[in-house]
Design a binder for these strands. Structure first.
Lengths: 355, 355
DNA sequence: CTGAAAGCGCTTACAG
DNA sequence: CTGAAAGCGCTTACAG
């Protein structure tokens, strides 16, 4: 045997003359302890800034930490402590500005509580929502904020029983009791349609997202309510509920506009739909009164400016995340359902009079 | 002592007549093993779908899993396996559509590789970038995609030595060798300014973000290059570099426009700046040729449409994430620097002629 | 086919 | 002031 540590059965001991750190394997507290010539617990004390270590010992430990490039493994730490200081955020699509504003607010609250954020997009797919959510749970996140795609959340029962806090946002939970932070979708849609009626529109249409999406259905209710309340009839062709796509929406617009008594007012079901409708209308040179659900950047710079029913995604995210952390801090009580009001923002497109 | 298990020294054994699961503490494989009357390893085999378990035994284990609501703790699993199947994404602000598009692409690649995504916003603060990044490293993410705020990344050296893969995106790493995926900022800005010059603009200004931001500085270079190449002089007042804010930008516009020989063309340094500039110009009723760096939704619906130097944030995110996973799969070789071309999109605002 | 022991990298509870 | 032992919930390596 040579005079270095080649005979050592396990390679964890640092022998002089050898590189202090091998690429690909990290030094642990054990390595630090060995190098500093102290016990494991003493290293732990220094790393965590606990009292009861001589200045001299602490210096030796710190020198070893520095020399080895040691950094504590928080995953191991948190496993032992039984918490994870992280939460999971499941939403429809982080690429959609509505959800990215919401996500930013959730992140800020998590950060304020010293929590890290897992994030994933479900793409409106209940299976992907479930897979993502359970993957986060398997990592033992402390809590979850979920924009649900599915309608059945009983799969979460073992998790909530085990103490994982869950707050649903934008849409309610399905078949389980849980906190939720929602927008007043019915009231918002009603305000938009009533606004059109007050401008003299007797024939207003609604272009909504796929009917299986909670918010799309609620807004359809609001549309129907408001038309009925204004004493206006509706026709099947005035409504379309479908995943937003230029073709589908273009065809729907043709049905609404190319007829003896065309629709003169439109409620767009969300930010994505508004943008497609505006493009389609511009392409046709059609001048139709338009109110969009969801505000968006530059809405006021278009000609005319776009009148919208504004939600506040950042506020929703903040309220949901704060509720989540209150639950994590032990707040008891039955599931809450918080519903935020919308705001009609008048900019011109909704005030175009009927021909 | 009563006839239930009160005398048991540790409460992990399930005794008949007791609730199978106490709220707040999760069943573990040990609990499942005890209930099914098998060893720990057998439970592990069933949970992981390994061969070598009788159908009968497996059924008993599955029944116990179901009854207890057991779900494997992946954090513990991954600690033992020495990987985490997660990556970290640090960017400037997930609420900014540019970064949310980028994030979505990174998420999709991570998902395709079975990896979960930690995400955090640095808000252009080098300290927050560092804190977030190291927090992700402390959780032992397999890799990182970073939009850096700071200029010194030597703090990552212990991590990269230990095998964490890092890809920088949008801006290069500072003082360390690392892969990076960038946009050709100089070329893009040059194209924008050259375009204005070709429309006959002899006096073009540049409204950029704070100079300490890499991309802002590069685009300033491009502006100067192109002006010089076109044989045009520049004046200090034609350039402003500052964190985008309506007041600052408004004052800068006043200096550029309210003078004997006003600026007639403008290059806006990024999507945020374009939006503020468009609002300010609209408020003044000023008709100035404008080219924006970064594309944005509805740019084509404004009157006139906004001519832009488009980047492709989703493509950047995808390329960066794919490079990261290639590194994680063992791809060797020196640090790569990938630079993506920009695309001039002509829509009208950049083709306004000089007065 | 099955399971007891050791270990991943930390912390907790306790004894010197 | 200091450290050996046990444990967090899993997997690995090995022996029956």
């Amino acid at each position: 045997m040579s005079d270095d540590a080649a005979g050592s059965p396990r390679g964890t001991t640092i022998s002089p003359g050898r590189p202090a750190m091998l690429s690909g394997c990290r030094p642990t507290m054990k390595d630090v302890a060995a190098r500093a010539g102290v016990g494991l617990k003493t290293v732990s004390r220094v790393v965590n800034g606990e009292a009861g270590v001589t200045a001299d010992t602490a210096d030796r430990v710190r020198a070893a930490i520095e020399a080895l490039g040691f950094r504590r493994n928080d995953s191991a730490r948190l496993l032992r402590k039984g918490q994870t200081a992280s939460i999971g955020l499941v939403l429809e699509d982080i690429g959609n500005p509505f959800y990215s504003a919401l996500a930013r607010a959730v992140e800020d609250v998590a950060h304020a509580h010293g929590s890290l954020l897992f994030m994933g997009s479900s793409d409106e797919d209940p299976d992907r929502e479930r897979t993502l959510t359970l993957a986060f749970c398997a990592r033992r996140v402390d809590g979850l904020v979920i924009v649900p795609a599915g309608k059945n959340h009983t799969y979460l029962l073992p998790e909530t029983t085990a103490g994982i806090a869950v707050v649903f946002i934008d849409r309610p939970a399905g078949l389980i009791e849980a906190d939720s932070v929602l927008t007043d979708n019915i009231g918002g849609a009603r305000d938009g349609v009533t606004h059109l009626a007050r401008q003299g529109h007797h024939r207003s249409g609604y272009i909504g997202d796929a009917l299986h999406i909670y918010t799309a259905g609620q807004r359809l209710h609001g549309y129907r309510d408001a038309m009925a309340a204004a004493g206006l009839r509706t026709e099947p062709d005035w409504v379309i509920m479908a995943t937003p796509h230029p073709d589908t929406i273009g065809q729907a617009l043709t049905r609404m506009l190319d007829r003896p008594e065309p629709v003169t007012g439109l409620l767009c079901g969300n930010n994505r739909i508004s943008i497609i409708v505006l493009r389609e209308l511009a392409a046709r040179g059609a001048r139709v009164a338009t109110v969009g659900f969801d505000d968006f950047e530059l809405a006021e710079l278009l000609t005319p400016g776009i009148t919208v029913i504004a939600q506040d995604p950042a506020r929703m995210g903040q309220i949901a995340a704060e509720l989540l952390f209150r639950r994590l801090c032990g707040e008891q009580g039955p599931a809450q359902r918080i519903e935020l009001a919308t705001r009609l923002v008048v900019r011109g497109s909704g005030e175009i009079p009927p021909p």
